[in-house]
């Protein structure tokens, strides 16, 4: 048996490699992410002016509305096109989380509502939830300890 892996060619493959256009991607992500957040801010302001919400309570309904909008865009097949253009700009805001949930739900509809949609809806978003909760726990633990010790 001859040596099957030929690491010698690693240099060879990287020569033709197409790098992600980092600066361009960052600018696009900044602009699109900024626009999404501005829309979110607008929703918050409208909620405070026209509905009985305060600056403290307007957060949750804003998130719901933004996720709803991202759901519509995903359903109409537009969010993946936005994602290819904006990258992190459309993935990091809460609309990206909505897209991850809804796209998985649509994709697995063919396997039924229970095993398909139910079983796969958090296929992508699940790890965000798991590590979000875990890191929140550890942060809270650190804060509690620091308060106990009188540091904070």
């Amino acid at each position: 048996m001859s040596q099957q892996k030929e690491p010698l060619f690693q240099a060879e493959t990287s020569r033709h490699d197409k790098k992600r256009p980092l600066v361009k991607n960052c600018i696009k992500a900044f602009v699109v992410g900024g626009i999404i957040c501005t829309i979110g801010q607008l929703v918050t302001v409208l909620l405070i002016i026209y509905f009985p919400f305060t600056e403290q309570t307007a957060g949750n309904p804003t998130v719901s509305i933004m996720v709803f909008l991202s759901m519509l865009l995903t359903g109409f097949g537009l969010y993946n096109k936005l994602g290819q253009f904006a990258g992190a700009g459309s993935a990091v805001p809460v609309t990206g989380f909505g897209n991850a949930v809804v796209s998985a739900a649509i994709e697995h509809r063919s396997e039924g509502l229970v095993l398909g949609v139910g079983g796969n809806i958090f296929k992508l978003a699940g790890s965000v939830i798991v590590y979000g909760v875990v890191s929140a726990f550890f942060l809270a633990l650190i804060k509690t300890l620091l308060i106990q010790w009188g540091v904070l």
């Binding site: 993946n80 994602g83 992508l124």
Partner: peptide
């Protein structure tokens, strides 16, 4: 890969 409607960015490769 990912669901068809997922908005992940694919690299130029």
């Amino acid at each position: 890969r990912y669901p068809t409607e997922y908005g992940g960015q694919k690299p130029p490769t």
